[in-house]
């Protein structure tokens, strides 16, 4: 892994996303499916940056997507008369990242001091807690949510607003997915990744080796949260042009993130892509043939993976290609 070959695994990742995008553009009527798959890959990749790399589960993860959605919604609904043009979307993304980073710092300040199970307990109510804060204190229009399709049209014009929510929002999701993959690989190949590997394996031993574990946990937590914020801003806010608290703080998205990461292989670069594609495609077909049964079928599969194949698909593949020339592409 020395020298220029260090970042080679990004090649298959980019190829996978490029193929997916091309398929969506070329095959008629498949754009929604492709957009959904990109969303799941991005979700998995962002979630993996924390759960996969540190071995801590954040059951309140969807809260970061939720506040990101609000970041975009609040920006567009309040600045639509400012004549900012497309700049408003940039500001919206910025706000999304800032909102989720702030929430991550607040939650992390308490939760990241805790180990193992206590961390999970601290995070399990974050999404519910934040939802009820918004509803209870009537922040950002409280339980009514924010509908900003009108504002988006004011800011960008009718036609552009339409294109943004039907096409560019999905392209941004691809962007988030690629960004998350690049960051994952960068972390894996640098000191951050080795620090996270060490603390995931044995936190006490990691400290003794001179690793400031809290610092690296915070880095992973905030990166993962900020990416979730961007994902919420693109995949939800821009696409749907409304925010409704019970929807964006729904714990099922955390469940989906867990499934995707475990399916593909926690802590790997390509796992979340494999997991996202498999989960997305199966969910798509299950939704057609057996609507409402996805979780009933996926929940026992999570258990089966944990008990029988804890390393996930890419983990198994990594074992298979070990010592071959393909090794440097698969991580």
């Amino acid at each position: 892994m020395r020298g220029s070959g260090k970042y080679l695994p990004i090649v298959p990742v980019l190829a996978a996303y490029a193929l997916l995008l091309l398929y969506g553009l070329a095959a008629p009527g498949k754009w929604q499916l492709v957009a959904q798959l990109a969303f799941y890959c991005a979700l998995g990749q962002a979630f993996n940056l924390f759960m996969g790399m540190t071995g801590y589960v954040d059951f309140g993860y969807v809260a970061f997507l939720g506040v990101g959605t609000y970041g975009m919604a609040v920006t567009i609904s309040s600045l639509s008369d400012g004549g900012l043009g497309l700049g408003i979307i940039l500001i919206g993304f910025l706000a999304a990242a800032v909102f989720s980073t702030i929430l991550a710092m607040a939650v992390g300040a308490v939760a990241l001091r805790l180990r193992g199970a206590y961390f999970a307990i601290a995070t399990i109510g974050v999404n519910e807690g934040f939802r009820y804060l918004i509803e209870g204190a009537r922040i950002w229009n409280g339980a009514d949510g924010i509908i900003f399709s009108r504002h988006l049209k004011t800011a960008l014009g009718r036609k552009m607003a339409m294109t943004v929510s039907t096409f560019w929002a999905d392209i941004f999701v691809f962007g988030v997915a690629v960004l998350a993959a690049v960051l994952t690989l960068y972390y894996l190949r640098n000191k951050v990744g080795y620090a996270l590997l060490a603390l995931r394996e044995d936190e006490d031993a990691a400290k003794v080796m001179g690793i400031d574990v809290t610092r690296y946990k915070i880095i992973a937590f905030i990166t993962s949260a900020a990416l979730a914020g961007l994902l919420g801003a693109s995949g939800w806010a821009l696409k749907l042009t409304y925010v409704y608290p019970p929807d964006v703080f729904e714990i099922h998205y955390t469940v989906e993130a867990i499934i995707i990461v475990l399916l593909g292989g926690a802590g790997t670069l390509m796992g979340p892509i494999a997991g996202g594609l498999i989960y997305g495609v199966s969910k798509y077909f299950l939704a057609i043939t057996l609507p409402g049964f996805q979780l009933l079928i996926f929940a026992p599969i999570i258990i089966a993976i944990i008990v029988i194949f804890p390393e996930g698909l890419v983990g198994i593949l990594k074992g298979k290609v070990h010592g071959t020339s393909l090794e440097k592409f698969v991580i």
Binding site: K191, A198, G210
Partner: peptide, 22 residues
């Protein structure tokens, strides 16, 4: 208590990366 999933080389490198020489 070596880091079980890391290779021997990576284990030792982690010491070099973060220890006094880090």
């Amino acid at each position: 208590r070596p880091f079980a999933s890391a290779t021997v080389q990576e284990n030792i490198a982690i010491g070099a990366m973060f220890g006094a020489a880090g």
